[in-house]
Simulated scan of single mutants.
Amino acid sequence: MRPESEAELAEMIRDAAAPLRVVGGGTRTIGGGGASEVLQTGGLSGVTLYEPGALTLVAKAGTSLSEVERLLDASGQRLAFEPTDYRGLLGTDGDSTIGGVVAANASGPRRIQAGACRDFLLGVRFVDGLGNVVKNGGRVMKNVTGYDLVKLMAGSRGALGVLTEVSLKVLPKPEAMACVMIEGLDDSAAVGAMSKGLTSPFDITGAAHLPSGPDGTPLTLLRIEGFAGSVDYRARQLAELFAESSVRIDNDPTSVAARWVQIRDVQPLQNTAGDIWRISCKPSDAPSLVGKLKPLAHLYDWGGGLVRALLPEGTDARLQLGHFDGHATRERGNGTTPVFPPEPAPVAALSRAIRQRFDPRGIFNPGTFH
């Protein structure tokens, strides 16, 4: 099923006699395994409004992410939340859609400084489980009336409705960027260094750690962006904070961009055998949690608040981790444990009530959430 208009989509949903697996480009699909039919949104494509001066873009949900990024790049702008490209990690192909990015709330390394996808989402249009067209939000950040369905749809993974249009705030691309690199730190020391950088006055836009860098040596990365003079000054000042370590500065924009694409797309764990688990936690807890998992490979992002871990196929990371202040999601693998962590009873009851309100027939992406 591939509707070419919002009206056609609404009619398809009203007439649906079986559960639907809602996909955009199919690059980051998780869940929906209980559906008998695929509903693909790629026919709902095209940028309907772009006002560079107002930092606003409106696009139909099936518009490819690459088209959006090319359009923004031509005006010296970007999606500040740096959406992850999951194709290499999950072994998928195709082209990610902007609706899929919003539905997954896909947010990369810059989230620690700029915020997540949902923080840049201004408005949405979607079709609910009864075939009703719903609109919420607008083209300005202060447009909040009634229920904040804009935030609710971000990260809902198609379980509440099928997005047809999204409005996003965009930002200018920086004039320059640099990366302060610290070599040889173990995991605990690296988390401490990232915390030191993030609490400094130098406005870090990325903080990650590779336990095994390109040459096998542990490598901690701190990114700075902005005006050229400011970036140069802040990078030198930041490097001086770690003078006792092996520190160097990369200020080549091509090299820096490539390093952070590596982190954004989890490239060190691509082309590997096993399950990928995503652990969200307090940065200070991250090294001890990794110690419990004993992963085949891992990396840290968001200053240690996000860990990607490669585990043997079928491993239940939640069982190994036990109770901790955070949660673990299985991003890749076919284990018997649910993809998403179980919710506390009150939250689960609220989630069921929301899904019942927007999808009373339970036809959207069954099995995605429990």
Rank of each mutant, 00 (worst) to 15 (best):
K142H: 13
R236S: 14
L39M: 05
G303T: 07
F81M: 04
Q77Y: 00
T41I: 13
A349W: 14
E343W: 13
V162T: 09
L210F: 08
A103C: 03
D187V: 12
D73L: 08
S351L: 12
L9H: 12
V140H: 06
L44Q: 04
A10E: 06
L198T: 13
A18Q: 07
S212V: 11
R332H: 02
G100Q: 04
D187F: 06
V347N: 10
N132P: 07
G274Y: 01
R259Q: 10
L121V: 15
L72H: 02
D15A: 12
G213D: 03
L210D: 03
A349E: 12
K292W: 05
A353M: 09
G62V: 06
V307T: 04
F202I: 07
C281G: 09
F242H: 04
S284F: 13
A235W: 03
G305W: 02
D359Y: 10
D119N: 07
L71C: 04
P3E: 08
R2K: 13
V247R: 00
L198C: 07
V231Q: 00
P218C: 05
Q320A: 14
A328N: 09
V290L: 13
V180L: 02
R248C: 08
P253Q: 00
D232A: 10
T199N: 14
L310V: 07
I354F: 13
S280E: 07
L152D: 09
L9S: 11
V47E: 06
V231D: 03
G229M: 03
S36V: 09
L149M: 07
G216Y: 05
V261G: 04
L321Y: 05
T368A: 07
D93A: 09
G34N: 05
V133L: 06
N271I: 04
Q77D: 00
V144N: 10
G305P: 14
V127T: 04
V266T: 11
L122C: 06
L57M: 10
T48W: 13
